[in-house]
Structure formats: C-alpha cells, structure tokens
Amino acid sequence: MIRETNKVDLLHKNYLQSLKVEKRWVRFYQGIIFLLFFSSWEISSQNRWIDPLIFSSPSKIWNLLIAKMQDGSLVTNLGVTLTETVFGFILGTLLGTILAAILWWSPMISKILDPYLVILNAMPKVALGPILIVAMGPGYPSIIAMGAIISIIITTIVVYTSFKEVDPNYVKVLQTFGATRFQCFKEAIMPASFPTIISTLKVNVGLSWVGVIVGEFLVSSKGLGYMIIYGFQVFNFTLVFLSLLVIAVFATIMYQLVELLEKKLIKE
C-alpha cells in the first residue's frame, strides 16, 4: 500500500516537472521572438535595409525615451492619456450596463429602441469626434466622451443579451417567494451575468484606447495621440514608434488588471 502511494507521488512529481519544463520552453520561445524582432529591426535599420527615417530603430527609440523621460514630457502626456482612457472605459462600461438594465426592465422600451441600437452599433463612432469636440470643447470632456461612446452601445447589446439568457427558472424561484422585479434583477439577473460583463470589460479596454487616441488626434494638444500626430507632422517617426510602444505596454497593463479583477469577482 505504501509502495503504491509512493508510486503515485512519484508520477505526480513527474507530471508537475513536465508542466514546468513545458512552461520554460514557452517562455524561451517568447523571449526568442522578442529578441529576434528587435535585433533584426535594429540591424536592418543600421544597414539601411529599411529606411531609418520612416522605420527608426530600437536604439533611437530608447534614446528618445530617456530624453523624454528626463524633460518630463512623456510622463505628462502619458498621464493625460491614461486618465482619459480609464475614465472613458469606466464610463462606457457603466453607462452601457445601466442602459442594458433599462432595456431588461422594460420590454416595451427595448422593442422601441431596437432599430436605433442597431443603427448606432453599425455607425463608426469615431466619426462623431468632430461634433463632440465642437460641442464639448477641445479638452478632457470631449476625449473622455470619445473613449466612452465607442464602447457604450456594444456593451449595451452584449450585456442585455446575457440578461435575457439567464435561465428563467432562477427568476421563477425568486418569484415564488414574492420577489419584485428589482429583487429578481439584483439576486439573479445581475450576478448571473457577471462573467459576461467582465468579458465586455476586456473588449472595452481596447476600444477605449482607440476612442481616446483618435480623440487626441483630433484635438491635438496633449497626450500620446498628440505625440503620434505631432511626430507624423514633423516627420519624426521615432516619436511615433515611442508612443506606440508606450501605448502597447499600458494597454496590456490595463488588460491584466481587468483579468485580475475577473479572478477576484468570479470565485472558482
């Protein structure tokens, strides 16, 4: 009997070991891709295989990063864009979910609004940018509105669909206890839809970045989007690439934070 358990323990250890080895290989190849990409970029730029004026090079970007960090302009611009994105993201998700709740609450409203939702969803929201900027002034409010507006309708549609798909028997159970419609929403509909809401959060992270960057293109006074458009106008593509890389890093961080939130909210 003891020998048996020893054997199982050993097998389990081997299994864990094999998992570890696999993970190490995955990390190794990920590192290789990273190094290959940046070193071939650097080398081909140095040897003028690609035009360094347009494609820049990692070393130039790095030097510019240091310079921009020292004069403080990167931090300011990054701060502006991050604030706008976070607010746009939260606002978009919140308003979308509230709208979905209203549609669930009143089937009549949902029927009336249905075609308008379809139109609004199909319309490219960034095209509203100029109107927003004129209406709300070239500053934070209009850019945050861009970040929010781009994700509201899709959030509404996805969350409303998940509200409708909650097993009606859960609601029936609550109704047998005399629950009001609000109680049904709070006790069954909302918690049952949490996983969907979280997954729309993940989508909305990406969408708000799009909205905010486009907004900054248009307003052109502050932020990473402004850095890109400025770099483009003065033909400083090193600046463009620097902004892009910074955006990539922070968008990833935001995405990871949402995943962390997901793990916390949905107890497995």
């Binding site: 097993d167 028997n169 859960y170 029936k172 159970v173 006790e187 069954a188 918690p191 049952a192 949490f194």
Partner: peptide, 8 residues
C-alpha cells in the same frame, strides 16, 4: 424539477 440553487 431541478434545485435551481443560485450557484454564486
């Protein structure tokens, strides 16, 4: 027919 206990 089924328990329909709220899973969360």
């Amino acid at each position: 027919q089924q328990d329909y206990l709220l899973p969360w």
